[in-house]
Structures are given as structure tokens and as C-alpha cells.
Amino acid sequence: MKEYSELPLREKNIVLIGFMGVGKTTIGQLVAKKLYRDFIDVDQEIENRHHMSIPAIFEQMGEDYFRKVERELIVDLCTNKRLKVISLGGGAYLQEEVRNACLSHCIVFFLDLSWDCWKERLPLIVNNRPVLKNKTLEEIERLFLQRREAYSIHNSRLLTNDLDPETAANQIVESIKWTWEVYESNE
């Protein structure tokens, strides 16, 4: 069997990264449907396996435990699965091992959103995001900017400020198909 990193580009997983609340799950589900792939939301997968919510895992077992479980799951998905669309939690990509596995074995799309557009979403997500709990707007902005630096290491970036999920998904699919064609024509 071929080494996983040597898989044809068409068989590699597509990984969506970006700050919490940018639409990775919604857009990822649409991309998966358009490419006839399975969709995996890492946070939902962890919740299913633990039979509890991410906030409950943070509260009962701690963030270190959550990050370990998250890292092991993502590395396994990246190295042992193919033809998936995978949505990472907002903090997952900060882990070097996760970043390396994603970049080595998958196509990584950064779903980017400006701070001004993102903070309009804050009231919708603040209550179910443990890392935002009890933080001021300034602290959240620092976290947003800090994580953006890690997200800057990717294969492709899509600015989603003025895009609805369907348009964003279409743009990702068009980009992927174009890349496949260019890659295959150069083989």
C-alpha cells in the first residue's frame, strides 16, 4: 500500500480550519455533499465518543485532556482516512502535531473572517464556547489574532466576510477541482 502522503491529490482529505464560529461545520457539510464525501466535525465526533458536550468535557476533565483527545483523533483521521471533509475546532490547529498531520496528508483550507464580521457573531456562540467564557471583548480579540497567526500556515485561504455558506462551499469546490485538474495534467 502507498504511503498516505503519496496518495493521489483527489483522495486526500480536505481539512477546514479557522476561528470558532466562522462556519467550518456549515460550509464543510456543503463541500462534502458537493464532492460526495463523508463529513466529520471533530468536535461533534469527540462529543459523540464521550457522550457529553465540549463545555462539559472542559469542565469535568479539563482543557489539557480535551486537547489530547482532539490531537489523537485528528492525527488518526489525517493519516488513516481518505476522501473525507474534516472540520477542526478553532483551537486544534494551534497544536504542532495537528498542523503537521494536516499539512502532510490533507488539503488545508483556512476559512478567514475579519474581526469586525466575526464579532457580530459573538452573541450567537459565546455561551457554548468554553475558551470564550468570562473573557472581555479585548481578550477575545487577542485570541482571535493569535490564532489567526497559526491559521496562516495552510494550502488555501477563503475570505468569507461577504459570502453565504453556499457560495463559500462552491468556491472551495471550484478551487479543489481546478487544483485536481492542474495536478493531474502535470503528472
Rank of each mutant, 00 (worst) to 15 (best):
M1G: 10
K2L: 15
E3V: 05
E3N: 11
Y4D: 13
Y4H: 13
Y4I: 14
S5Q: 10
S5R: 10
E6M: 05
E6D: 10
R10S: 15
K12G: 15
K12S: 15
I17G: 07
F19D: 01
M20C: 06
M20I: 04
G21W: 01
V22I: 05
G23W: 00
G23E: 05
T25F: 00
T25C: 05
T26M: 06
G28W: 11
K33F: 13
K34A: 09
L35D: 12
D38I: 14
F39C: 15
V42I: 09
Q44V: 01
Q44M: 10
E45D: 14
N48F: 14
R49P: 02
H51W: 11
M52D: 10
M52F: 08
A56V: 07
E59N: 09
Q60H: 07
M61Y: 09
F66P: 03
F66G: 01
K68V: 04
K68A: 03
E70F: 14
E70H: 13
E72Y: 11
V75S: 13
C78T: 11
T79D: 02
K81Q: 11
R82Y: 15
L83Q: 13
L83A: 12
I86R: 02
I86K: 03
I86Y: 09
G89K: 13
G90P: 07
A92N: 07
A92V: 04
Y93I: 03
L94H: 12
E96G: 05
E96D: 08
E96T: 02
E96F: 04
E97M: 02
V98N: 09
R99A: 02
R99Y: 03
N100A: 12
N100K: 12
A101H: 11
C102R: 05
S104R: 06
C106N: 12
V108L: 13
F109N: 12
F110N: 15
L111M: 00
D112M: 06
W115N: 06
D116I: 08
D116P: 08
D116S: 13
D116Y: 10
C117D: 08
W118Y: 09
K119W: 00
E120G: 04
R121N: 03
P123D: 13
L124T: 03
L124K: 04
N127L: 03
N128G: 03
R129I: 08
V131A: 04
V131S: 03
K133V: 01
T136P: 06
E139P: 01
R142G: 04
L145F: 08
Q146N: 04
Q146D: 06
Q146L: 04
R147M: 01
E149Q: 15
E149S: 14
A150G: 07
A150S: 06
A150P: 05
I153E: 11
H154A: 05
H154I: 03
N155R: 03
S156G: 11
R157E: 14
L159D: 07
L159T: 10
P165D: 02
P165N: 07
E166H: 01
T167I: 03
A168G: 03
N170M: 02
N170Q: 03
N170R: 00
N170G: 01
I172E: 06
V173F: 00
E174P: 10
S175H: 08
K177W: 06
W178V: 12
W178S: 11
T179L: 07
T179M: 09
W180K: 05
Y183K: 07
S185M: 11
S185G: 09
